[in-house]
């Protein structure tokens, strides 16, 4: 040993090993992150997020279920306000039913109940239904934009975009 000259001394050897391991771990982490990112597609073929809901005069007072099956929205007219209410239960994502006799939305999965306004009053759900952005187009038709969500518990139902005065 003594007559051969070592290319690396002990300390240098361990620092190279450390660098090597750090790089190996980083490469593994990078591959893992890429595989993870791979599971999120860039384009998603979701149903239409915006739709035209006709004229404000089309809606009588109460709950309108015309857009429930196609867009997942209840149009609710109450106290001079028209709102677009999401039909996704805030508990676990089932679809509640509108019970006209009892004037409430009732979720079949776990029994969460909501008033016509969307405020929760029974069952395990932690918060009210969500409202979507609703507004008038220049031609007077109602446009509902589901990409923008307004939540009661955050005080967002005061936002003028979350309802329509009719």
């Amino acid at each position: 040993m003594s007559d051969t000259k070592l290319a690396l001394n002990r300390r240098e050897f361990f620092s190279y090993v450390t660098v090597g391991w750090v790089m190996f771990s980083a490469a593994c982490a990078g591959l893992g992150a890429m595989a993870f990112r791979f599971s999120y597609p860039n384009v998603n073929f979701d149903p239409e997020m915006e739709f035209l809901a006709g004229l404000p005069g089309d809606f009588p007072s109460g709950v309108d279920e015309r857009f429930k099956a196609t867009f997942g929205v209840w149009m609710v007219k109450q106290e001079g306000k028209l709102i677009a209410l999401s039909n996704i239960c805030t508990h676990l994502g089932c679809i509640p039913n509108w019970l006209p006799a009892e004037l409430k939305f009732k979720c079949p999965c776990h029994g969460s109940g909501y008033y016509m306004s969307g405020i929760n009053f029974e069952g395990p759900t932690p918060r009210p239904l969500e409202r979507f952005k609703i507004g008038l187009q220049p031609d007077g038709k109602i446009k509902v934009d589901k990409t923008k969500v307004y939540r009661w518990e955050k005080g967002e139902w005061e936002n003028p975009d979350s309802f329509l005065n009719v």
Binding site: A69, I95, N97, P108
Partner: peptide, 9 residues
Amino acid sequence: NPTWAPNPA
């Protein structure tokens, strides 16, 4: 049918 949930689910 994604628009109608059976009862109970």
